[in-house]
Design a protein around this nucleic acid. Structure first.
Lengths: 173, 173
DNA sequence: TATTGTTATACTCTATAACTATA
DNA sequence: TATAGTTATAGAGTATAACAATA
């Protein structure tokens, strides 16, 4: 199936560790800033930012879950939390009664606006400061390719929630 | 203090998102593999791997915490969990009675060995597959610089646990 | 007094499974 | 029957603060 895997070489190990450590340190710092500036967790920020980016300010739950969160119940939990704070509203979709449309409120946008400057400052200070312009471009290019590949490659067993077209032959146990 | 921060440009945003998303997807996949293959969380794996790498198979709690975990109580919790499973032992340090020395056991090494092949397979399939040799080298270089910078730049307020040398003038409240 | 580590505790987050309702 | 979402629930993980013991 997959060829022999003796081990990783030094370069690969270095890339792996650097990726994990850098993202972990960055996320930690960002989480702290988001908590202080707007009492938001990272996931909550991601949800608000996703909605804020959308032209309508709205998204279906499932689409939100695909982008940000990994389980549906987890998203329900976060959506409830945000709704309690009046940062989003949830309404039944008009076209498909099963769906719920989540919409960012003015207050939600206000929190985003309050949080953004510090957020950017953290990124500038921590991530971009030691990198050249071309470093950043290269980084974006390489990691985007890796990310796109990962999105295309579902974790071995766990089949994707969202089956594009039932290929049919998946008749196993 | 810090100069005006209008916003991030497209490249910066791309690099930031790609970093967060790629690392998040990768970590998720790795966590699943570690859980299935050895019933380990990522932090637990990091702790075991750190100990396994050490020439003596041992580390002081504080040194472990510095490298892997963020709060000391969090490390105590994880160390207890690992000790219950006989994957590590904890003993008072001989030189400094306050310290605890954590040591990986044979069984801990066995779990590591059981988990490694799959771990590497996930990295190969998900992270390295879409990247060229030189991509990987470049990635390692850039992210290592970013990581080192972040380690040197403590989050604005929270002073580092480990004060190198008391600069003295910190005479506040 | 400062440092190392543990404990008690509270809270956030996530996931699984069962359930409802609509398509 | 399949899909969208919620609920109940349980478990893992983390952090804060108070504490004990040693330096």
């Amino acid at each position: 199936m997959t060829s022999p895997r003796p081990s990783l070489d030094a370069t690969q190990l270095g890339a792996y560790f650097a990726l994990i450590e850098a993202s972990s340190l960055l996320k930690h710092a960002v989480e702290q800033q988001l908590r202080e500036a707007g009492d938001l967790s990272y996931v909550q920020f991601q949800l608000l930012a996703t909605l804020g980016d959308s032209p309508t300010g709205s998204q279906r739950m499932t689409d939100l879950a695909d982008g940000v969160v990994y389980s549906r119940s987890g998203l329900t939990y976060q959506a409830q939390t945000l709704e309690k704070r009046d940062l989003v509203t949830r309404t039944p979709s008009s076209d498909d009664e099963r769906s719920t449309t989540v919409t960012i409120t003015d207050e939600g946008r206000a929190v985003l606006a309050r949080v953004f400057p510090g957020h950017i400052a953290v990124l500038d200070d921590l991530l971009f400061a030691p990198l050249s312009r071309s470093d950043i471009e290269t980084l974006a290019d390489i990691l985007a390719r890796a990310r796109d590949h990962m999105r295309r490659t579902p974790p071995r067993s766990a089949e994707p929630r969202r089956r594009k077209k039932t290929t049919g032959t998946t008749q196993a146990p």
